[in-house]
Amino acid sequence: MTSLLAVLGGLLLVAGASFLLLGGLGLVRMPDVYNRIQAGTKATTLGTLLTLAGVACLHPGWTMKLLLIGLFLLFTNPLSSQVLARAAHRSKVAPTAATEVDLLDETKGDGA
């Protein structure tokens, strides 16, 4: 039983860390700020959650505190991404030329 948990924990750890790696890769490869926020902050959120789950399997006694960290990240991470994206858009950071439509720009003009 314990060894089964250990194997599951190990798998979750490696899977989570792989998502972290993909997030970092996305951060380097994506063409503009908005896409970088997408690739960077979200792949890493899932990566961290999986890693926390893996640690919880290895250390069942820590589950509650790990759950608290996970919940906290789940609530705060999207907030910081949104605030960052909004700040970028309000400061007129242009999306990459590949962007096909920007309805926010057309409808709001110079307002806000």
Binding site: V7, L11, L13, V14, A17, L21
Partner: peptide, 19 residues
């Protein structure tokens, strides 16, 4: 097994940090 996966995860995380 668990030990090895921890170090592998740490390595992957370190690469992500460098990126």
């Amino acid at each position: 097994m668990a030990e090895a996966s921890i170090y592998l995860a740490a390595l992957l995380a370190a690469v992500a940090f460098v990126l």
